[in-house]
């Protein structure tokens, strides 16, 4: 790296550097330990039950993890910029109900149903963002309020029951049950969203600015980043992706589900992001780690179910995992054990 253009800010040509980092180093220690844990989980349940590692069960795991995965990917984005969204599950539930009901009342037009859900998603996201940014509400509190309120709205419009029936429509059937190149459509959607978010975080100036906002908001502001605009946009993005998750929920179950199917997804999403290496105070994390954590959680959940372990215990395991992930993070950061953490 000795050559350097002599004129300072010349932005014309610069020598491309071949950067050959070893693939292991590129993965990072956090991801390696996740892969290790995943191998252990797969090996353990595979040894206990021969069907666990069958291709059909792996597809079951993947499909079950898709909706969590979508929410975890966008949760990663908001955590990177120092926020949090615990209303994602309720947002997905609301979108699910809206998609099914709009579909029905529009005379079985699937695109109208999905469009309505996406619009609601954007609106709900903007409401979250505006409350946080301009209302100066702590993100946890604002979205805790959203968690309750959006669930309530979903129950109000649906009367608290599953609404509509969409499995007479080929588009919904394709989304929920279809396959492309041997993989379920739902998985393709997750891959598409994850790749798009990954590219945004990793290779665009938008991503740089999001990391900057979460890393040091004062410095980000003084570096000319419009923090407010970015945060509202991030919450709107969450709304859209949560709406996609809600639509998939409708397509999977055949009808709009106000609560069942979406409740508790926020916990899974946040757990996956934290396990995947997102620093909960912002500035750090990535899609890769989150997806690995989603896979780990999915494999664990499925394995426990296959082994016939009570779902209540699964909740306990999930809560314990979230706290453990954060404890490990704080240890690594050398956080001192005095007073309340930030």
């Amino acid at each position: 790296m000795t050559t350097a253009t002599t004129s300072p800010a010349e932005t014309g040509k610069a020598p491309e550097k071949a950067h050959a980092r070893s693939p292991l180093a590129a993965l990072g220690g956090q991801n390696l330990s996740l892969i290790g844990a995943l191998v252990v989980v797969l090996g353990l349940f595979g040894a206990l039950n021969e069907n666990y590692l069958s291709w059909s069960n792996i597809q079951v795991i993947a499909e079950a993890a898709t909706i969590t995965g979508l929410l975890a990917v966008v949760q990663t984005v908001v955590i990177i910029c120092g926020g949090l969204d615990i209303s994602v599950g309720s947002q997905a539930g609301l979108a699910s109900v809206v998609s099914a009901m709009a579909f029905t009342s529009a005379g079985s037009d699937p695109y109208l149903g999905m469009g309505a859900a996406l619009v609601i998603g954007v609106l709900v996201g903007i409401v979250n963002g505006v409350a946080i940014v301009y209302g100066r509400v702590n993100p946890t509190i604002a979205t805790l309020a959203g968690l309750a309120a959006y669930k309530g709205v979903a129950q109000l419009v649906s009367d608290g029951r599953a609404q509509g029936y969409v499995l007479n429509d080929p588009v919904f059937v394709f989304l929920g049950r279809g396959k492309v190149a041997g993989l379920p459509v739902m998985i393709w959607i997750l891959i598409a969203v994850a790749v798009a978010v990954h590219v945004m975080l990793r290779y665009t100036d938008i991503g740089r600015n999001l990391y900057a906002i979460g890393g040091n908001d004062t410095a980000a502001r003084l570096a000319g980043i419009n923090i407010n605009k970015y945060l509202v946009a991030v919450y709107a993005l969450i709304g859209v992706v949560a709406a996609v998750a809600g639509i998939l929920l409708t397509a999977r179950t055949g009808s709009g589900q106000p609560v069942s199917g979406s409740e508790g997804l926020e916990l899974k999403a946040i757990t996956a992001a934290a396990l995947g290496g997102c620093a909960l105070k912002g500035g750090k994390g990535g899609v890769g780690g989150t997806l690995l954590a989603v896979a780990l959680l999915g494999a664990l959940e499925n394995g426990l179910t296959v082994q016939g372990i009570n779902t209540f215990w699964q909740n306990v395991a999930q809560g314990a995992l979230l706290v453990t992930a954060v404890v490990i993070q704080q240890r690594r950061n050398g956080e001192r054990a005095v007073g309340l953490p930030h």
Binding site: A4, T5, P8, A14, E16, Y203, D205, I206
Partner: peptide, 14 residues
């Protein structure tokens, strides 16, 4: 909106 990383590295190094 893509950061041209080769160029970015070059100027940062410079």
């Amino acid at each position: 909106r893509f950061v041209r990383s080769g160029q970015e590295k070059a100027v940062a190094q410079d």
